[in-house]
Design a protein around this nucleic acid. Structure first.
Lengths: 125, 125
DNA sequence: ATTTTCCGACTACAGATGTAGAATATATTC
DNA sequence: GAATATATTCTACATCTGTAGTCGGAAAAT
């Protein structure tokens, strides 16, 4: 049930990525380290976490002194929902139209194409 | 040159779509009719137009009494820029990763697959 | 126990976006 | 030309998002 009734901002998404990559509940320190290169202040990260919890994208649970955060939407769910949104919005909902346009404009390596062909042949089977 | 340094909101995008579909400069009345089903007030549409012009997504030119609007970014340019953005954001910039995930999760009809295979074979040639 | 440190809550603020009322300009009609 | 219709601009406001300061409480260090 991809019932994502919220949006995740670009900065917030960076937090989600950390959580997805971690694969298990992590606390703020962990997240802070993981996004250190962004240069966000501690409270900025806090705000993102709070909002993501409010939105229902994360859950949090206090263990000992810290909160531990867990994604409520998986990366692949999110990917799919965003991809569908894009296809619906921009390509009249037609995956085919989308794919054709994508592959016509992009340069895929020969091996990429091989791989994709293999996938299709499998599907076709 | 996909040098889109602005964002187009979802509602604004609806306006862009009308312009892209029209294929030639159109005025506000035309746009109003085209988006009638959205139930937007006249001034709302005006605001969108003004903002899109400010952003550099549209140009407008007064002809007689009305302004006529023309997209400064083509639909395919916009599609590409958004698609790239999504792939970069969500799939580590890997088109292949993206495509694999897309086609593994989505159901394409047999004829869609045929068509795509044809495209690949062509590319491969 | 007092100080220092760290975390999470609350508050704040600016820019973007969706939405539209009010005011003004322009054109059409009588 | 005055009244009416329509278009365009200005102003306004709420929500969302990025960004962060401050405050209060808890934990760690001394």
């Amino acid at each position: 049930m991809t019932s994502k009734s919220y949006n995740i901002g670009e900065a917030e998404l960076e937090i989600m990525k950390v959580l997805w990559t971690a694969g298990n509940p992590v606390n703020t320190q962990y997240i802070s380290k993981a996004v250190a290169e962004k240069g966000w202040k501690r409270t900025t990260i806090s705000t993102f976490l709070t909002r993501l919890v409010q939105k229902g994208a994360l859950s949090c649970e206090k263990q000992g002194k810290f909160y531990y955060y867990t994604p409520l939407i998986s990366q692949s769910e999110y990917r799919m929902s965003q991809t569908k949104h894009l296809i619906k919005d921009l390509y009249n909902g037609s995956i085919k139209e989308f794919a054709v346009s994508l592959f016509e404009e992009e340069k895929l390596s020969a091996s990429d194409i091989q791989e994709l062909k293999a996938i299709f042949e499998e599907k076709e089977g």
